[in-house]
């Protein structure tokens, strides 16, 4: 069974960069989302066992997504990938239930390390 993944970022280049950085041996089914609303739709449609989530986005930002998922006690594992890596932001996303935080630009090695550390690989 493939792992259901949603990659949410308003930047197409950034989504591609995340998807290219996923371990090639990992069997996944990927859904793309351009903003927080689409990410939540994917989560509640059962398409996001793991959500890679940007923070600064139009329509609905990543922090609002995390707040919603926490409020609904969703089972989605969230890995935040953002250029905004201020300590206060990192603390906030972890408090809202994100598994971890990766600073952009993402690399395959960094992503693999994070997935291994979380026992997801």
């Amino acid at each position: 069974m493939p792992v259901l993944i949603t990659v949410c970022d308003d930047s197409m280049m950034s989504r591609k960069s995340v998807m290219r950085s996923l371990p090639p041996e990992w069997e996944v089914e990927i859904t793309q989302a351009c903003n927080g609303v689409e990410a939540l739709e994917a989560c509640y449609a059962g398409k996001a066992e793991i959500l890679f989530l940007d923070l600064t986005m139009p329509v609905m930002d990543g922090l609002e997504v995390l707040e919603n998922l926490k409020e609904k006690e969703a089972n989605t594992v969230v890995i935040v990938i953002s250029a905004d890596f201020q300590p206060e932001v990192q603390a906030r996303v972890v408090a809202l239930g994100a598994l971890t935080f990766i600073t952009k630009p993402v690399t395959a090695d960094r992503l693999r390390d994070v997935l291994r550390a979380a026992g997801l690989l």
Binding site: S11, M12, M13, A83, T103, K104, P105
Partner: peptide, 19 residues
């Protein structure tokens, strides 16, 4: 899209320095 993302990453560093 790519240029905006490059700027976004650059500005993240700038914001962190100021923060």
């Amino acid at each position: 899209d790519a240029l905006q993302e490059v700027l976004n990453i650059s500005m993240g560093q700038a914001a962190n320095n100021l923060a």
